[in-house]
Design a protein around this nucleic acid. Structure first.
Lengths: 128, 128
DNA sequence: CTTGGAGTTCGCGTTTAGCGTACATTATAG
DNA sequence: CTATAATGTACGCTAAACGCGAACTCCAAG
């Protein structure tokens, strides 16, 4: 298990050892043992940790480097087009180039600019 | 650990208990214990199993239901614009309406149509 | 100064992982 | 049809280690 990752995840949530251990249903010293590397969690424990920290067991174990976890890919509700990094957009199965995405962004922005100049009623017909 | 998944993965590769155990560097009886539920693998062992079976620890543990695992491109997810369901696209933090997305799709399609009619050289300038 | 929360360390009791071994059950010969 | 081997299953033993409480230190709040 990658100790730094576990420690980082807990500290980011500003949780104490005691509170985290309580969440997991184990003793403080037990959980402290995980973070110090003195003990290794059981399969059950590491699964609970992944649940609690909202990440994957593979991330905790260092098998993958992305912390984000999509149980049913429903974790992503919103996807910002201007900040696409790891996700490729496709249309009819064919991926869009970065240039094309930039075009789309520019199109949306100018479209909004124009709409912003019109009357508030324009809002009602935005679903064209 | 989901026993059926481990058994299924091994049998699909037509491996014997002995051979699989050898690959993992453990005793046959030890690995057999995993599949029968009599023993639970250590963190190290289950990591090796995920490597060997080319899947994720989360899948072996039943935290996810997709068996496929792409270590090298694990973060390059593809998102098909024409099949957006629960995911909302945003630009500058503002969500796009379904109509707007349809516009984008139509735009990309016609753009491709036009490109398809041109000479192959057009490919070289597609990143405008 | 004192009280209490946070983090660290350690000894102890109990659990158990991993192994070897032995047995049942097919197949692969000979 | 036997013998030989491979596959899968079950179990006892032992060393390892998990999990816990307790005993610290450190530090900030009262």
């Amino acid at each position: 298990m990658i100790l730094n990752r576990v420690i980082e995840l807990r500290k980011r949530k500003k949780w104490s050892l005691q509170y985290t251990a309580d969440q997991l249903g184990i003793a403080k010293s037990t959980y402290a043992g995980y973070e110090s590397g003195y003990r290794r969690p059981s399969l059950e424990a590491i699964k609970l940790m992944a649940d609690l920290f909202e990440t994957s067991v593979d991330y905790l174990l260092g098998r993958v480097d992305t912390e984000t976890f999509h149980p049913e890919k429903e974790n992503i509700q919103e996807l910002e087009l201007t900040q696409l990094s790891e996700i490729k957009l496709t249309v009819d199965g064919k991926p869009l180039s970065d240039g094309e995405i930039n075009q789309l962004i520019a199109f949306i922005r100018s479209k909004r600019e124009i709409e912003g100049l019109q009357t508030p009623d324009a809002q009602t017909q935005k679903n064209w």
